[in-house]
């Protein structure tokens, strides 16, 4: 992928029509402003609705990563070759973000033990695209495109498509069923989150599925 971006397609769920989007291997001030000015208010709007509906905060979906501060994360990793950011934009709005680490993690699956992989540190869709927050999410396909970008990066780094991540509970079915990753169970060193890993063969299968995910 060039720094100028890659054209990709999202599904507009309201119309059922494809929407042209752009995948970029960078996170700029524009993305951080979108998160702070659009994502956060939209998320808290949903929380306000849950509150007014009498739902106790412990039952609100989408709270697991409400504390994520993308500006802080990006600034902390600025200039480090070991980390990279990706963004997905559509019609001038940031729809998804991902931070990856290409150096610090190794495979845990016995068949690839200690081999290099691309580790997805953080990945997030805009609140209006998240099925746990919206009955009809605005766009579909964001998670798959970002996971696909991590796989492509893994191939470019000669890691053969191997990727790994710790999943938030609401995203577990996506990584196991949609992405076909191996579930290696709870990891007590990462707040008990489940760890998922993708082998080269699983990466090949994921790419071969294309838009049929």
């Amino acid at each position: 992928m060039s720094e100028n971006g890659l054209r990709v397609t999202l599904l507009d769920t309201a119309t059922g029509e494809p929407r042209e989007a752009e995948l970029l291997s960078s996170i700029t001030e524009k993305q951080l402003t979108d998160v702070e000015g659009e994502w956060k208010p939209a998320l808290y709007d949903r929380f306000r609705e849950f509150n007014r509906a009498g739902k106790p905060p412990t039952e609100w979906p989408g709270t697991e990563n409400k504390h994520w501060d993308w500006r802080q994360k990006v600034e902390k990793l600025q200039g480090l070759l070991s980390h990279d950011g990706y963004c997905l934009t559509c019609q001038g709005m940031t729809e998804g973000l991902m931070l990856i680490d290409t150096s610090s993690y190794r495979c845990r699956l016995p068949e690839n033990e200690k081999r290099n992989l691309v580790y997805i540190d953080y990945v997030e869709s805009a609140p209006w695209n998240r099925p746990e927050l919206e009955q009809v999410p605005r766009y579909r396909g964001i998670g798959s495109i970002l996971v696909g970008a991590a796989i492509e990066r893994s191939i470019a780094e000669e890691f053969k498509g191997r990727i790994g991540l710790h999943a938030l509970p609401q995203a577990e079915p996506f990584y196991s069923a949609t992405c076909g990753m191996s579930d290696l169970g709870r990891d007590d060193t990462k707040q008990g989150l489940r760890y998922y890993e993708m082998t080269a063969a699983q990466a090949e299968a994921f790419i071969a599925k294309g838009n049929n995910r």
Binding site: L81, N116, E157
Partner: peptide
């Protein structure tokens, strides 16, 4: 051992070195 080209190995080494130095 890592089934990677020498270029990829050195690229990895540089990343790790920079990360540790930082």
């Amino acid at each position: 051992r890592k089934d990677m080209s020498k270029t990829a190995v050195l690229r990895q080494a540089l990343r790790l070195y920079q990360l540790l130095e930082a």
